[in-house]
C-alpha cells in the first residue's frame, strides 16, 4: 500500500445524484468517480443549478444517493448509522440560523453533541475542544456574545468553529463566502486552507470564487452542464476545462489571471 492510498478518506464510485420520489426520478448527474484525501482542500465549482448542492447534500447524507457507492474510510455511508456519521462528517450551511438566545460559546459547544452524554454535559475534553476551535478561528473574544450581535464575517468564523468542535475528519461547506465582503472572503479561504493542512481536515467547499479556488485548492471538482472533472487546478487549466463553465461566447477564461473576461461584442 503506498502512502497516498493510505490517506484516502472518501471514495466515490459510479455515483448517481438527484432527487427521487414514488412517481419519478430526476437524475442530476451520474457516473461520478472521484477520491478525496485526508488534509485535502477541495473547491467545488460550477454555475448555479448545475448540481453542486445536490452533490454536497448526497455526500452528507441529507438526501439519498440514487445509485453507486460512497465510501468513507472504506465503509459504505448508508451502512454508517447517523450517530457515528456525525463524528465523521460535519457541515456548515448557508441557511440563516433560527432566532434564539444562544451565545457563541453555546453554539460552538453544540458541535460537541455527538460526543456528549444524554444531558449534554461538557467534559473537560469537550471544553478543550470548544476553546481550541474558537482559538483556531480567532473568535475567543466573542465567546459570551449572543450570536445575533455578530457580523456576517464573525458569524461565519463561529460556524466554522462549531464544525471544528464536532471534530470530524471531513467538513463540508456550502458556499461559505457567499455573504461576505472581499476581505472576509479571502480570510475565510486562507483559514480553511490553513485548517486543512494544520488540523489535517478534508475540507470540501462549494464556491463561485474561481480564481482563488484555482490558486488555493489542492483539487477542484468542476461541474459543467455536460461533464464533471475531478483534478488539480493546473491539470484542469492545461486541459482548458474552465472555459466549459460558461457556454456563452461573451465570457472567456483567461489562464494568465485565472479570471473570466467579458468580451463586449
Amino acid at each position: 500500500m503506498t502512502e497516498n492510498q493510505k490517506n484516502i478518506i472518501l471514495e466515490v464510485r459510479d455515483l448517481s445524484i438527484g432527487y427521487a420520489d414514488k412517481k419519478k426520478k430526476v437524475i442530476v448527474k451520474n457516473q461520478l468517480n472521484f477520491k478525496a484525501n485526508q488534509g485535502e482542500f477541495i473547491c467545488l465549482l460550477g454555475k448555479n443549478g448545475v448540481g453542486k448542492s445536490t452533490l454536497l447534500k448526497t455526500l452528507s447524507k441529507v438526501i439519498p444517493k440514487l445509485a453507486g457507492n460512497i465510501l468513507i474510510n472504506k465503509n459504505e455511508i448508508n451502512k454508517i448509522n447517523s450517530k457515528l456519521f456525525s463524528k465523521i462528517l460535519s457541515v456548515v450551511l448557508t441557511e440563516r440560523l433560527p432566532e434564539s438566545n444562544l451565545t457563541v460559546f453555546e453554539l460552538v459547544a453544540l458541535g460537541r453533541q455527538p460526543h456528549t452524554n444524554w444531558v449534554d454535559n461538557l467534559s473537560v475534553e469537550d471544553l478543550n475542544m470548544v476553546n481550541n476551535a474558537l482559538e483556531l478561528t480567532n473568535t475567543v473574544h466573542l465567546k459570551d456574545k449572543n450570536i445575533f450581535e455578530l457580523s456576517d464575517g464573525q458569524l461565519q468564523k463561529v460556524l466554522i468553529s462549531r464544525a471544528l468542535a464536532q471534530d470530524t475528519p471531513i467538513i463540508i461547506f456550502d458556499e461559505p463566502t457567499a455573504h461576505l465582503d472581499i476581505h472576509h472572503k479571502i480570510e475565510t479561504f486562507l483559514l480553511l486552507k490553513k485548517l486543512s493542512k494544520e488540523a489535517q481536515k478534508t475540507i470540501i467547499i462549494s464556491t463561485h470564487e474561481i480564481h482563488w479556488a484555482i490558486e488555493l485548492a489542492d483539487t477542484i471538482w468542476l461541474m459543467t452542464a455536460n461533464n464533471c472533472y475531478f483534478d488539480s487546478p493546473e491539470n484542469l487549466k492545461n486541459q482548458e476545462r474552465f472555459q466549459e463553465l460558461f457556454d456563452s461566447l461573451l465570457v472567456t477564461f483567461d489562464a494568465q489571471s485565472n479570471q473570466f473576461k467579458i468580451s463586449v461584442p
Binding site: V62, K87, V91, L110, P114
Partner: peptide, 24 residues
C-alpha cells in the same frame, strides 16, 4: 422530556444542522 433535552438543543440550529449532529 429527559430524553428530548439534547435533540431540542440541537433544533435551535435548525433541522439541517440537527440532522448533521446525528439527530433523527
Amino acid at each position: 422530556l429527559l430524553f428530548l433535552i439534547k435533540p431540542l438543543n440541537s433544533l435551535l440550529l435548525g433541522e439541517n444542522y440537527a440532522q448533521s449532529l446525528g439527530v433523527n
